[in-house]
């Protein structure tokens, strides 16, 4: 516990130092295009209370949530199928390689062209960019399933549900967590590009507007709000979840 608070204190000091350096640099440079920490934080509070930051943040998060869920679900099913059935693997392996190497930007542009500048196109583009990585991770996890435990399950006549719940899913869990975390890291970046290209709201759209107006104060404020949300989800949901689910390893 003492080590934990020390770690928190260390992080707090490091963060304060960063803000101080930033503020000092801004005062030294004295340029409208390099606002200081204080000015940006002022703007941030103003935008939260008076502006539409919360609306944009919500729009972005909703897209992330839907795309994330869709990619995880489809990727898991396809990955397990490819890991289990050799012919499915042979059939789809080249597709996966192609999609892994296709830039997210290309997928977004093509979908906007084909489906119009719609919500569906945006979410599909984000989900498709993440999908192949999930498939590859889960395929690897499925291939690594323990044959001895499978034999145990069969000899004790465990039904399909119990085998899945007690034998298979716990083995796939670490792979699901890796897919979730690395996938989320990817989605955070892609969703902004997709919004910037073809959506009328969301953090990505606003950043484009601020870029055109050279409104750097707002641009940084919106980015900070976004980073704060990403880190909150990472630290308050993903990490505790991971610790709880993998408790048996300690």
């Amino acid at each position: 516990m003492a080590r934990f608070s020390a770690a928190i204190a260390g992080r707090a000091i490091s963060l304060l130092l960063f803000l101080a350096v930033w503020e000092a640099a801004a005062r030294l440079i004295q340029n409208r295009l390099f606002p200081g920490a204080g000015a940006v934080l002022d703007t941030l509070f103003y935008e939260i209370v008076e502006g539409k930051l919360l609306h944009d943040l919500a729009a972005t998060l909703l897209r992330v949530a839907i795309a994330f869920a869709a990619a995880m679900l489809a990727g898991t099913v396809i990955g397990i199928a490819m890991g289990l059935v050799r012919s499915v693997d042979v059939l789809f392996d080249s597709w996966i390689v192609l999609f892994l190497n296709l830039p997210a930007l290309v997928i977004a542009v093509l979908l906007y062209v084909w489906l119009g500048l719609t919500e569906a196109a945006a979410i599909t583009a984000v989900a498709l960019s993440k999908l192949p990585a999930v498939v590859v991770t889960l395929r690897e996890g499925t291939r690594a399933l323990d044959r001895d435990l499978a034999g145990m399950a069969r000899s004790f006549r465990l039904d399909a549900w119990r085998t899945l719940r007690h034998v298979i899913l716990p083995q796939l869990l670490p792979y699901l967590l890796v897919a979730a975390r690395s996938g989320l890291a990817l989605i955070w970046k892609i969703v902004l590009v997709v919004e910037l290209l073809g959506r009328p709201d969301g953090i990505g759209y606003e950043i484009q507007v601020f870029f055109q107006l050279f409104d750097i104060k707002r641009l940084i404020a919106y980015s900070l709000a976004f980073v704060a949300v990403v880190l909150t989800i990472e630290w308050c949901i993903l990490l505790p979840l991971e610790r709880g689910l993998l408790r048996w390893r300690q």
Binding site: D148, S155, L158, V167, W248
Partner: peptide
Amino acid sequence: RIGYVFQAPRLLPWRTVRQNLEVV
């Protein structure tokens, strides 16, 4: 009903001893 004791114990590492028995 067949009870099988393998050469390696083949317990489920992510279940407690009690749960390992309850599962079967």
